[in-house]
């Protein structure tokens, strides 16, 4: 396995649209069998990356390889090994959902009708309706079912659940877990933080066309701050002055602050002698991860959007 080239590898990938650098030296690597969360707000370059990976757009400079090959030149051969769910699924209005699913499965190669029917049932899709009558969520289900029922090595999912309700979101997470058990790799772009958190082995955070942070969730958490709410027997004002402590404030009996990941141990030594009555520690949320990279203003904006979609 280790001799296999990475499923996806980009190095200093640049894509320009006129004067705008949509992708600005983007580095991204996904190993076989990995679920990789691709996290960033709208307009960060997630969909552009997907479309370069599909060979629909041509990279201006840098390297991009899928299974070790150039997606622009070897699109057809590579597409035999992957399935794609677009961010904004548009279907042929005069076909039924079932017809679109079948058309895609047949054009991709041999497939199991049992698997297809099972997925249609689990996603509760009525395949007899013309797609022009489908909601956004139903169109997404069609694309998801045709991708998940295919026998492929890689799933490229561009914000796949933006229109799904919470119940379908659960079904989606189950099906992705099943897919990875069968050894598939997944690139999952999203700004729905909980989803990425629940599914991903590794996460890359993209901002203005660059990957600003990449690693496992715990690696990323280590680099950020934990929120602590504590009630102590003796006054705890001295904590505010510790290095690595931020946003210190008092609410009645409690004090609330954030502490850098690497200072947690020091903090515990400082707190213990003060007589801790109660303590609540929140792990850093991905909202905080994002905010750290986008600054307060942008962070609030992207979180608000994520919450709306979720």
């Amino acid at each position: 396995m280790s001799e296999n080239p990475p499923v996806i590898r980009t190095e200093k990938l640049v894509k320009r649209f006129g004067a705008v650098r949509a992708l600005d030296e983007l580095d991204l690597t996904i190993a076989t069998g990995e679920v990789h969360g691709f996290l960033g707000p709208n307009g960060a370059g997630k969909s552009t990356t997907m479309r370069v990976l599909l060979g629909l757009l041509r990279a201006d400079s840098g390297t991009v390889e899928m299974f070790g090959r150039d997606p622009w030149r070897h699109a057809v051969a590579l597409h035999r090994r992957l399935a794609y769910v677009p961010g904004d699924v548009e279907l042929w209005p005069n076909l039924t959902g079932g017809e679109v699913i079948d058309m895609f499965l047949r054009l991709r190669g041999p497939y199991s009708t049992a698997r297809r029917d099972e997925l249609i049932e689990r996603f509760a899709l009525d395949p007899r309706k013309k797609t022009r009558t489908y909601s956004k969520g139903n169109r997404q289900k069609v694309a998801l079912i045709s991708a998940l029922a295919s026998d492929v090595d890689l799933l490229l999912l561009d914000e796949p659940t933006a229109g799904l309700d919470p119940l379908m979101e659960v079904v989606f997470q189950q099906t992705i877990k099943e897919a990875t058990q069968n050894g598939r790799s997944v690139l999952l772009s999203s700004h729905i933080l909980a989803q990425v958190e629940a599914l991903s082995d590794r996460i890359s955070i993209i901002r203005a066309g660059q990957v600003v942070e990449s690693g496992t969730l715990s690696e990323l958490r280590h680099m950020t701050r934990t929120t602590i709410e504590v009630e102590t027997a003796r006054p705890a004002g001295e904590i505010a002055g510790m290095s690595g402590v931020h946003d210190f404030r008092t609410e009645g009996e409690r004090i609330i602050f954030e502490v850098d990941g690497e200072r947690v141990e020091d903090l515990m030594h400082q707190l213990a002698p003060l007589g801790v009555r109660s303590l609540v520690a929140h792990p850093p949320t991905l909202e905080q991860l994002l905010m750290r990279h986008y600054g307060e203003d942008l962070g609030h904006r992207s979180v608000a959007e994520g919450a709306q979609k979720g």
Partner: peptide
């Protein structure tokens, strides 16, 4: 609008079949 077919006819599984439905 009426309900249609739950599964595709065999002809739809080819590029020409797809094009036919687009332009028909």
């Amino acid at each position: 609008p009426r309900l249609g077919r739950a599964t595709a006819r065999p002809s739809l599984g080819t590029p020409v079949g797809m094009a036919l439905r687009v332009l028909r």
